Computed example of a mutant assay.
Amino acid sequence: MVVTGEVDMATADTMLQAALRESAARVTLDLRAVTFFDSAAIHAVVRLAGQYPGTLTVLPSRQVTRVLEIAGLGGQPWLPPG
């Protein structure tokens, strides 16, 4: 699933619900075109990680990577080594 632009309080739940509708065994959340990512977005990704344990991959933009690192989530198994 490709996400672009801002993921914030107004859009994070939409992203979450769209990803939860994925019927694949593995889910890739492509955030490389995301320019803003707030705590609501973090919460949505953490919920997805719980829903798809071991099968979620998040491809972050530089901004998303920075936010996740600041939040202490930089070493999560759903992030590719960087």
Rank of each mutant, 00 (worst) to 15 (best):
V2P: 04
V2H: 15
V2S: 14
V3C: 08
V3F: 07
G5E: 11
G5Y: 14
G5C: 11
E6S: 14
E6W: 13
V7E: 01
V7D: 02
V7L: 10
M9H: 06
A10M: 15
T11N: 07
T11Q: 05
T11S: 11
D13L: 15
T14V: 15
M15D: 00
M15V: 03
L16R: 09
L16H: 01
L16V: 03
Q17P: 01
Q17L: 13
A18Y: 03
A18T: 09
A19D: 02
A19G: 07
A19R: 05
L20C: 10
R21G: 07
R21S: 08
E22V: 08
E22K: 14
E22M: 12
E22D: 13
S23V: 03
S23F: 06
A25R: 14
R26G: 04
R26Y: 03
R26T: 07
V27D: 02
V27S: 04
V27N: 07
T28Y: 05
T28E: 10
D30R: 14
D30F: 07
L31H: 03
L31M: 09
R32I: 06
R32S: 11
R32T: 13
A33R: 13
A33F: 04
A33L: 12
V34H: 04
T35Q: 15
F36T: 04
F36G: 04
F37S: 03
F37I: 08
F37T: 03
D38I: 04
D38P: 02
D38S: 07
D38E: 06
S39F: 02
S39Y: 02
A41T: 01
I42L: 02
I42P: 00
H43L: 08
H43N: 12
H43K: 12
A44L: 15
A44D: 04
V45W: 01
V45M: 08
V46Q: 00
V46C: 01
L48M: 12
A49D: 01
A49G: 07
G50I: 02
G50N: 09
G50V: 02
G50H: 02
G50L: 03
Q51D: 08
Y52F: 15
Y52A: 09
Y52W: 14
P53G: 10
P53W: 14
L56G: 00
L56Y: 01
L56V: 04
L56I: 05
T57E: 08
V58Y: 03
L59Q: 11
S61M: 14
R62T: 08
R62D: 05
R62G: 08
Q63S: 12
Q63G: 05
Q63V: 13
V64F: 07
V64T: 08
V64D: 01
V64N: 09
V64A: 06
R66N: 03
R66A: 04
R66V: 01
L68E: 00
E69M: 11
E69N: 11
I70K: 05
I70C: 10
A71K: 12
G72W: 11
G72A: 12
G72T: 05
G72F: 06
L73G: 00
L73H: 03
L73Y: 00
G74M: 14
Q76L: 13
Q76A: 11
Q76D: 04
P77M: 10
P77D: 15
P77L: 11
P77I: 13
W78C: 10
W78S: 08
W78A: 13
P80M: 13
P80R: 15
P81D: 10
P81S: 13
G82H: 14
